[in-house]
Design a protein around this nucleic acid. Structure first.
Length: 559
RNA sequence: CGGGGUGUAGCUCAGUCUGGUAGAGCGCUGCGUUUGGGACGCAGAGGUCGCGGGUUCAGAUCCCGCCGCCCCGACCA
């Protein structure tokens, strides 16, 4: 049935809501796609739900194509299930039923799916690919940017179960390829990057990032296209510092009142890159570790997390004082008893370092000679770095993480006792993987990448309607009749048609059509009625031409 | 959780400093004119000024407390 715009709930807005910042947030609200109910909680209005469903369908088709089996797991989940695996995150919503039984609203379904996977008995039943589209609840400390970070959202999460890591690698590869296919069909520019594995220490963990005007990730790519990574783990090659004269042994220099790299470099008249910066941190087990990076670099927290294999926090002033005998601005690696993790950039050359004595620094401090660190890549890549593969220039872009796939091994199957009997007769835990993608974030990413000053430019694959027919009737019954006939004929041809027969002025209809952003627009008005034609134009502006009424359906189907 | 901002009509906002009848534009309803890029005229509807307490003859406005929302940071399987 043709969708008659006068009867639909498409509340378009002339102005963007005052609290919107991201383009996708503004345009989706203005276009009548979504509305906010509370912080991070959104309703998909009819138009928005159509797009969401289109995204879902593409994901579903690609999942089914690799043998995925769709199912549905519940939101309401007994708390014990999560207690068994020891996942205890602050962003989990908790609740009780009337009898005091405790439940959680899960943020993901590893526990539940593994609970079911206990019914897998034999290697003969492997591998398995199970997935569902379900609502996730996360008590996010700070939701933001419309659909970019929500507290309640729908995610497609898939789970694989395999006999061993080799078999798992095949399941993982299937998903990688499926993700590439779905994102291509969704019309997104995306990069698959190695993801931060953090505390969970997944062996394989890939993120799918879409460059966008807004987003929470920073995508680092090489100008030559041979390197892409999330900033959190990106490796960049920093410039070579210009070093001052070398010293036979570290030489003390008075630096009264100097506690920042800027003032240190200025006082000594040297390159900030020829200094080092000490960051004392304390691991969960209470051990103090000194992180050391070049003066012009920043410590990359997730890299440090990977190196220490433990959560950590900055040391307090008291801890610093008792371990180094000096305060924060004067710390260095020479003569200290704590473990030193030095960034790879400090391997070669002599650097200025704190002397562990307030108001003093050391010139000519050389790793290996003056202190024995453990070297690691712990610096955050930054503008001006060169590509680690080809030395090309690195680019930094804001990006949206739309998907994440990773290996969770036996992280859940062991505690939940999901084992199977292998060919050799031994009982083994299932090897699992998780594969998530958020249709709402996909929508936001598409809008971020595909819009103009007037509104959204939907790709054909997920547009709410294929064709937007505008009847510029101005009271003319004949124009209305012709437009209706055309809309019906297009539907007949298998297209989804949004038919604007509202009693509005042309300018308003054009503006709304631009905002809503259907790929093809057909304008029926008095102007073209006489020569039995209509005006057809594509939302991306590529085509704008007059087509004879009898040819329109064919035209649209062919373009 | 720290920092900043904000809350007045459906939307965007003025009014708050300096207390005294609650406003504008857009939108909405009716009638008329108009009709290929957000028209015009006339007549109308619509607000416990986020919530609670206090000061005052009088509070949108001053004071105290709370809440919502936005941005930056922390956090983010």
């Amino acid at each position: 049935m043709v969708a008659r715009q006068s009867q639909l709930f498409i509340p378009t807005l002339r102005e963007a809501p005052a609290d919107a910042e991201a383009v996708s947030h503004k345009l989706l609200v203005r276009g009548g796609y979504i509305r906010q109910v509370s912080a991070g909680v959104w309703t998909f209005l009819p138009l928005g739900w159509r797009v969401h469903q289109n995204v879902v369908q593409i994901i579903r088709e690609e999942m089914d194509a690799i043998g995925g089996q769709e199912m549905l797991m519940p939101v309401l989940t007994p708390a014990e299930l999560w207690e068994t695996t020891g996942r205890d995150y602050p962003e989990i919503f908790r609740l009780e039923d009337r009898a005091g039984r405790r439940f959680i609203l899960p943020m993901t379904h590893e526990e539940t799916v593994t609970f079911h996977a206990r019914e897998i008995q034999s290697y003969r039943q492997l591998p398995q690919i199970l997935y569902h589209f379900s609502i996730k609840e996360r008590d996010e400390p700070r939701p933001r940017g419309g659909l970019l970070r929500m507290r309640e959202f729908i995610m497609k999460d898939a789970y694989t179960f395999d006999r061993n890591e080799d078999e798992f690698a095949r399941s993982f590869e299937l998903h990688r390829q499926a993700y590439h296919r779905m994102l291509e069909r969704l019309g997104l520019e995306f990069y698959e990057v190695e993801a931060e594995s953090g505390m969970m220490g997944g062996q394989q963990s890939q993120d799918f990032l879409c460059p966008a005007g807004s987003g929470e990730n920073t995508l680092v790519t090489c100008e030559h296209g041979d390197y892409a990574a999330d900033l959190e783990i990106a490796r960049g090659v920093p410039r070579t510092p210009s070093f001052p004269a070398t010293e036979e042994v570290p030489k003390e220099v008075a630096t009264p009142g100097v506690t920042t790299i800027e003032s240190l470099a200025e006082l000594l008249g040297i390159d900030a890159a020829a200094t080092s910066k000490a960051m004392p941190v304390v691991k969960t087990d209470g051990t103090l570790v000194l992180g050391l990076v070049r003066g012009d670099d920043r410590l990359a927290e997730s890299k440090m997390l990977g190196v220490l294999k433990s959560d950590y926090r900055p040391a307090t002033d008291e801890e610093i004082r008792s371990a180094f005998g000096a305060s924060g601005g004067s710390l260095g690696p020479v003569g200290v008893s704590v473990h030193v993790v030095a960034d790879d950039a400090l391997r070669e050359g002599q650097f200025v370092a704190g002397a562990n004595r307030d108001g003093w620094h050391l010139l000519g401090v050389e790793a290996g000679r003056d202190y024995a660190p453990r070297f690691a890549d712990i610096r955050e890549a930054r503008e001006g770095d060169r590509c680690p593969v080809c030395s090309g220039e690195l680019r930094f872009q804001t990006a949206i993480e739309v998907g994440h796939i990773f290996n969770f091994g036996s992280r859940y199957s062991e505690p939940l006792g999901a084992t199977f009997l292998d060919e050799d007769g031994t009982e083994k835990p299932l090897i699992g993987g998780s594969y998530g993608i958020g249709p709402a974030r996909v929508m936001a990413a598409v809008v971020e990448q595909s819009h103009d000053g007037n509104g959204i430019v939907w790709p054909k694959s997920i547009a709410p309607y294929d064709v937007h027919v505008l009847a510029l009737h101005g009271g003319s019954a004949e124009v209305l009749m012709r437009a209706e006939q055309l809309a019906a004929a297009l539907e007949e041809g298998g297209l989804d048609v949004l038919y604007d027969e509202r009693d509005e002025r042309p300018g308003e209809k054009f503006a709304d059509a631009d905002l809503i952003g259907c790929p093809t627009r057909i304008i029926v008005g008095k102007k073209t009625l006489d020569d039995g034609a209509v005006d057809v134009r594509t939302r991306d502006g590529a085509i704008d031409e007059r087509v004879s009424s009898s040819e329109v359906v064919k035209w649209v189907l062919q373009h």
